[in-house]
Write a protein that binds this DNA or RNA. Sequence first.
DNA 1: ATTATTAACGAATAATTGCTTAGTCAGTGA
DNA 2: TCACTGACTAAGCAATTATTCGTTAATAAT
Lengths: 317, 317
Amino acid sequence: MAKRSKSGQDRLDDAARAGWLYYVAHNNQDEVAEKMGISRQSAQRLVSLAMRERLIKVRLDHPIAHCMELAQQLTEKYGLESCEVTLSDPTSDDPAIGIAEVAANQMERYFKSKEPIVMALGTGRELREAVKQLTPMNCPQHKVVSLVGNLAPDGSASFNDVIMRLGETIKAPHYPMAVPVVATSSKERDIFCAQKPIKSNIALAKSADVAFVGIGEINEAPPMLTDGFITQTELDGLIAAGAIGEVVGWAFDNDGTIIKGETNSRVASVQLEQPPSCHTIGVARGNNKLPAIQAALAGRWITGLITDESTATALVG
Amino acid sequence: MAKRSKSGQDRLDDAARAGWLYYVAHNNQDEVAEKMGISRQSAQRLVSLAMRERLIKVRLDHPIAHCMELAQQLTEKYGLESCEVTLSDPTSDDPAIGIAEVAANQMERYFKSKEPIVMALGTGRELREAVKQLTPMNCPQHKVVSLVGNLAPDGSASFNDVIMRLGETIKAPHYPMAVPVVATSSKERDIFCAQKPIKSNIALAKSADVAFVGIGEINEAPPMLTDGFITQTELDGLIAAGAIGEVVGWAFDNDGTIIKGETNSRVASVQLEQPPSCHTIGVARGNNKLPAIQAALAGRWITGLITDESTATALVG
DNA sequence: ATTATTAACGAATAATTGCTTAGTCAGTGA
DNA sequence: TCACTGACTAAGCAATTATTCGTTAATAAT
């Protein structure tokens, strides 16, 4: 082409032509160049210009597309490191449907690593379901450690067996914490945590590479209460103090600020850090958990989120 | 990922995710693979699956897009080697607007070739305009030759000066034909064409690598008549014989079949071949030329077309 | 008129993508 | 049980695409 200078419009026209030939007609850049009588580099520049100038619109015709967009918006809005949004199944009331599979997938991904990693686990039915989904594998190089006690209020150890099951499923050393979730007093908690094995468990948990945690709602009838973690009196106190949700037993208010006193002064779980010292992935969905999830995000207690489409939609709004 | 076998739906979901990450979020395949926890090969397969399954829709937001589609449809419908459709300018009546620039561009493309080429030129205001648009350049390696005579009915040589101007613009040897467009008799035509220089001109034209030709309409008041190429009587005869259009003086009917007798027995232009022996690009637009263009395409007198959006729209319909 | 600045280009080079091969592993059915 | 199937990964080559760099032409600013 002669060196007659072209207007920007002409250049955009050319870009549009090149973009059409490339993206719509599936020519490669050599063919585009040949058909337009320009060098391949010029064709490449035009093609990339067409993309830069948003002449080319790409869209994905699949329900997943909406989930991906929601995930991206959540990632940006809350500065997350990772976010995955699954399709909501409106025909099911299962609170773990969908997100458990995703959480299991992400766990397996970590376990497939050659490098030994330490994975910490919190509470929640979703996590329990996720662990159930896991494919058995052989990962003696990894360690899985609980962030919360496994002693039920009655003293039995059957309570939080998720760590045991996980460890057995992937044949990795596992470290449950032989303490109650909430001690009867601050002093008792300190005594528990001062024990050698518990101390080393806590140290291991604090060195974790990744953590998966459930997010619990605190309202009239939370799982915390029905599972017997806390008493009705304790719940009333938390609600009075503004508690809206909890992660590994630590209750926080609407802003994500940890509640002072109440059960928080007796929680035996590993103390969370803000921001978390390791990638901490929250796994939760559902309208009843919405305020709790929002607060956990606002308080930056989690750096990743696995949720479903309807919950994500509410969160970005 | 575990070896739990996945349903086709799940696989499409994955393909959609991969496609979204790749095409919408502009990750490369390594990043897609990392984010989905799969190998790059799997990511590649999913991305290409998403494209194959038409999950990814690409569209071009630019007026040109429509022109490109029209060009493709014309290419397929008439088996063309090349086709270019420009935007119609509804505010202008200039019959050469747009297509002259495109024709000039395509000519320049040929001239930029290192290899010596022979370009043949037909008649038409569009071609004249195109040549005017050409940027001067230095191409002594090429040759430009006329397909039609340059003698006006009054014997002056000023008539078809397009070849002269072209040759001068690009500094290439040029070969006008010193004969009238239509001889007064078949015998006169034969005498003209038997002349040494004319014979070699014709031979040169027949060896051309590419030809640009106008397409003339034959109706009540064609340029052929107003320019004095033919008389009213001759025109009446052509119309009576079913002539609808012409290329380099050769009149044809609706099907593109060359008219027997009439002026065709006296045309001094280089005889066209069917299909053309070289890439022959028709340059024409406008409603009044529509039947002529259609006939030229039907008769396969041209292997390429340069036209505008509204003409192309009518041609594909 | 002459000199900076900008824009565009081709050539070379780097990065990415497409594709093939070989090997592994789990589920399947004889 | 055992070959068979299918899907995967790793490796690596070939093809394609993106970027960088030095040059040149056009444009703007002295």
